[in-house]
Simulated assay, not measured.
Amino acid sequence: MDSGWLVLLSVAFGLLVGAGFMALLHAAERRGSNAVDVVNPAVPDGVEQVINALDSAGVVLDPSNNVVTASPGSIAFGLVAQQTLVHPELIALVDKVRSSGEPVTTTVELARGPFGDASIHFLVRVARLGSRYILLLAEDHSETYRLEDVRRDFIANISHELKTPIGAISLLSEALDPAADDPEQVRRFAKRLHTEAARLTRITQEIIELSRLQAADTLRSAELLNVDHLIASAMDQNHVQAELRGTTLVKGGAKHVEVYGDESLLVMAIHNLVGNAIQYSLENSRVGIGVRVEDGVVEIAVTDQGLGIASDDLDRVFERFFRVDQARSRNTGGTGLGLSIVKHIVENHGGDVRVWSQLGRGSTFTIRLPEATPVASASQGDSR
């Protein structure tokens, strides 16, 4: 009986030791699995799909700053190359977030690619992604900075443009009193006063007109207009200026073409182009106004035989107050707003304006507008 109990106790003890050993093995296995997860965890589910769907730049980095996944935008902007961040500024932000654990949002100006001087302004946000990874998001804000630069330039330019005639009027008015006994001097000063006042009025009117055009998204009232009539009106307004410079105005191309729009605005647009062509042409030269219709688009081209525009300036000629020849424009009374007004008038009519130019050969500005096509009536469309 005693020997039977001893056998049972031995078996029970063996089972207990075996169970304990298996429990230890399972515990060790779980700890090993957890250690592997800590050393080499996977990127959280769905993050890679979200990053790939971003239009902006998105990057996930591991502890060695290797790029685990990156959006197409981050590569297109030149932020990522060969699975690494390109810019030291971004690497410094990532390291800062990794050490502090706090997210960072800031603006950074970075070079676009390894060549050239072009740069991009980014709004960058860097934050932890889980316990191991870092998420970097960058959004291109270059357009915001560009618009701010345009606003500053506009204020600076308008201040300068207004200061010139206002200063001249002030000086001339002060000179009138001492010259009261000299009728010839008074007449000369009065003529200058009239010229400067007219220039100030013109600048003010063009600024008001440009502001009105920029505020209008669409035309409130449009009517059917004959392009021949629009061109004839614009040529008539520039007739005196053309005669003074010995410039011949020539019209050619398609006839009896029609567009929908505001007559006064379209005449102003063509007038500005013709006036510019005369102003920047050589004396005793020729300015041509041609009309063409193709695929439902009416093209009104104004061509001069002037000195032309440098290729670097072609993209800027429609900016407010930008003038290719600053000194010459000032002498001829130009404001630098004419082409900007043309651009906004044409865009408000659903068209666009283009420029071709070559130094020494002249320039061609082309207004492109939708052709007005007649709508058939129900009776005309009924074949019964």
Rank of each mutant, 00 (worst) to 15 (best):
L266V: 00
I367Q: 00
G362K: 04
A19L: 07
S3G: 08
M235G: 08
R152N: 06
A111S: 13
K191M: 13
R368F: 02
H87K: 03
I270D: 00
R361S: 09
K163N: 12
D182R: 14
S131W: 12
R98E: 09
T201D: 15
G362Y: 01
V86R: 03
S173N: 13
L90Y: 09
P72E: 01
A70F: 00
W5S: 14
G351T: 00
E196D: 15
E206F: 05
L24R: 11
F13E: 12
V259L: 06
H26E: 13
P165E: 01
A301R: 13
R220G: 15
Q237N: 10
V186R: 06
Q279M: 13
L25G: 01
V257A: 02
K96P: 04
S71F: 06
F189A: 04
K191V: 11
V124M: 04
N65S: 08
V50N: 01
W5P: 06
A190V: 12
N284W: 04
E299N: 08
H271Q: 11
P41K: 05
L282H: 15
L244I: 13
G167D: 06
G333L: 06
G333K: 07
V38H: 07
I158P: 04
S363F: 03
A179P: 05
D117S: 13
Q185T: 11
V59T: 01
G360A: 02
H194P: 03
E102R: 15
G116K: 08
V150H: 14
D325L: 04
R31T: 09
A234S: 07
V36P: 09
V97M: 07
P88N: 10
R146G: 03
G18P: 08
G32V: 00
I345Q: 01
M22G: 08
H26N: 12
I169Q: 09
G362I: 05
E161C: 03
H194Y: 10
V36D: 08
V317I: 13
F115A: 12
G246R: 05
F122S: 02
T335A: 02
Q49V: 10
L219R: 14
A53S: 13
A197K: 02
P44A: 01
R328K: 09
H239N: 10
A327S: 11
H239L: 13
L79H: 05
F77G: 01
R199W: 10
F365Q: 02
D153M: 08
A310Y: 11
